[in-house]
């Protein structure tokens, strides 16, 4: 039996950070010595290649591999700086009809022969794209932001994952704003875990650096960024491997910030 961990990164609601998380976790796992492949299952609107800065290296896709018009090795795009990480691009967006759950399963089982981790970037929603991706996975990470609508959709997705027997299903809370949480302008971590009833694998703060790095095609985890979001993704990758690392506490982060501000002010004044 293969020891590969195949993990679906999904959310329900769109735009909450699935692709960002897939890219950053992929790099983080690769850096920690795990051979990792990220599979773009968002066939309609692929952009995992963009985020990883690999767009211009794509020659073949999963579609050609399945049609046996190329070998898997030819379609895999190795990351420039992080050789442990490969991308398997989705097929041509205009030819979606070919993909069935069975196709997805064949692709994933090919990948499972070669990699320690297979991360699948899932399309938003609960339509065919999602169903195809679910059929090929064992585990899932559900990404949500602390917004009522995102949590509601995440809950729906968790229900569907449970029915399909996907386990374990773990939670990543993205775009957390400590100040809004402590002021109770946003759902709190407790509110969310209380409803979703999933183990919380990590929280990622709202961070401009995420957007900057995305636009550059260099995920935050690639450099040695000290940004909290980069740290958060590295920690999530470690927790995935069973390491116990305490979660960041938004209220503490806030206090830390305030303390730092006070220090700065003091140095200025005195």
């Amino acid at each position: 039996m293969s020891t590969t961990r195949t993990i679906l990164i999904c959310s329900g609601k769109g735009g909450v950070g699935k692709t960002t998380s897939t890219a950053n976790l992929g790099i983080a796992l690769a850096k920690q010595g795990k051979t990792t492949v990220v599979l773009d299952a968002d066939f309609g609107l692929r952009n995992l290649d963009l985020l990883l800065g690999l767009e211009n290296r794509i020659v073949y896709t999963a579609q050609e591999v399945l049609a046996e018009s190329c070998r898997l090795e030819q379609a895999l795009v190795k990351h420039k700086q992080e050789p442990n990480l490969c991308l398997l691009p989705a097929g041509n967006p205009r030819m979606l009809e070919w993909l069935t759950p069975k196709d997805m399963q064949s692709i994933v089982s090919l990948l499972e022969k070669r990699f320690d981790y297979v991360l699948i970037d899932c399309p938003a929603g609960i339509e065919d794209g999602f169903k195809n991706a679910v059929s090929a996975t064992r585990e899932a990470l559900v990404i949500t932001t602390p917004e009522v609508a995102a949590v509601r959709d995440a809950d729906r997705v968790i229900g569907l994952l449970n029915i399909q027997g996907v386990a374990p299903v773990q939670l990543v809370l993205n775009r957390v704003r400590p100040r809004m949480m402590t002021n109770q302008e946003m759902l709190s971590v407790d509110d969310i875990t209380d409803i979703l009833a999933l183990p919380l694998l990590g929280l990622v703060f709202e961070d401009e650096q995420v957007i900057v790095s995305t636009n550059r095609g260099e995920p935050l985890t690639l450099g040695d960024s000290s940004a909290p979001a980069a740290q958060a993704y590295h920690n999530i990758a470690r927790r995935l491997q069973g390491e116990e690392i305490p979660l960041m506490d938004p209220s503490q982060a806030r206090r830390g910030l305030r303390a730092r501000m006070r220090k700065l002010m003091q140095t200025k004044i005195f």
Binding site: R152, D153, I158
Partner: peptide, 24 residues
């Protein structure tokens, strides 16, 4: 079991659920 967003459980008689009914 818990009813999650989008689930609908219904009965012609009475209903007894061991679990939560989530928003949605």
């Amino acid at each position: 079991g818990t009813l999650r967003s989008g689930d609908h459980l219904q009965s012609d008689g009475d209903i007894l659920l061991f679990g939560d009914v989530n928003p949605g």
